[in-house]
């Protein structure tokens, strides 16, 4: 039987905390990309041009149906083949941001479609441009129903950051791997990483629900 050593836990904590910072940074930056790009992908499926809709739709389907870890490798390794060198961080953010942009585009799409038809008509009756309709009337109403899904994917992107370890981003799992192989002890690092994930994702899920309620009230919905 292998024994749990608290001394070792305290010894490795500073490194794990630093790695937690990197994990949160990766999740935050990836999510920021996904939030913006996702909206573009959602609106890209709503243009009057059937070809554009088709291409964007198929692209989203493709990204959603294939493993993120493979996409991370693809972005990281294919660049150099054509003379473009991307850092692990850069490749990781592109891959994870794009992957979650596709998920978020579906969430936005659902939100936009949930806005009643009469809202579009009222906006037309006020003689708004298409851009004004989206910005002032439709998007503000599409966001609250999308918040739950957006929140889930924020937690989701956080839990998917360990995949970035495969290209050398020093997030939690990468650090735990390093600690484990330096010390030949895997019990504490992997367990602590698990606990850190739980300690962040469980309260985060609760906070997101709280936030969702507040936004709804603020918008008078």
């Amino acid at each position: 039987m292998f024994e749990w050593k608290w001394d070792f836990v305290w010894e490795i904590m500073p490194r794990l905390i630093e790695a937690t910072g990197n994990t949160l940074l990766a999740a935050g930056a990836g999510y920021a990309i996904a939030v913006v790009l996702g909206l573009a992908l959602a609106l890209g499926q709503r243009t009057p041009y059937a070809v554009v809709t088709f291409v964007v739709r198929e692209f989203v389907e493709f990204i959603r149906s294939t493993p993120l870890i493979l996409q991370i490798f693809f972005v990281f390794y294919v660049g150099p083949q054509f003379g473009i060198r991307l850092s692990p961080w850069m490749s990781g953010m592109i891959a994870i941001g794009l992957h979650y942009a596709c998920y978020l585009s579906e969430v936005y799409r659902g939100g936009i479609e949930s806005v009643a038809k009469g809202q579009w008509e009222a906006a037309t009756a006020l003689n708004m441009t298409t851009a004004q309709k989206y910005r002032r009337i439709i998007i503000p109403q599409a966001i609250p129903p999308a918040l739950a899904g957006m929140g889930n994917y924020l937690v989701g992107i956080f839990k998917d950051t360990p995949m970035l370890s495969v290209i050398g981003v020093a997030e939690l799992i990468h650090t735990a791997n390093a600690i484990g192989s330096e010390n030949y002890r895997f019990l504490e690092p992997y367990t602590m990483v698990g606990i850190i994930f739980l300690a962040i994702s469980l309260p985060a899920a609760g906070l997101i629900r709280l936030f969702e309620g507040r936004v709804r009230r603020k918008l008078g919905l």
Binding site: A116, G118, Q119, E121, A122, T124, A125, N127, I137, P140, Q141, L219, G220, L221
Partner: peptide, 18 residues
């Protein structure tokens, strides 16, 4: 369209505005 205004059966007020 600037010449025309309309009121709807279901009002269609913007719910996120006062």
């Amino acid at each position: 369209r600037a010449d025309i205004g309309m009121c709807f059966q279901h009002f269609n007020l913007f719910p996120h505005m006062t």
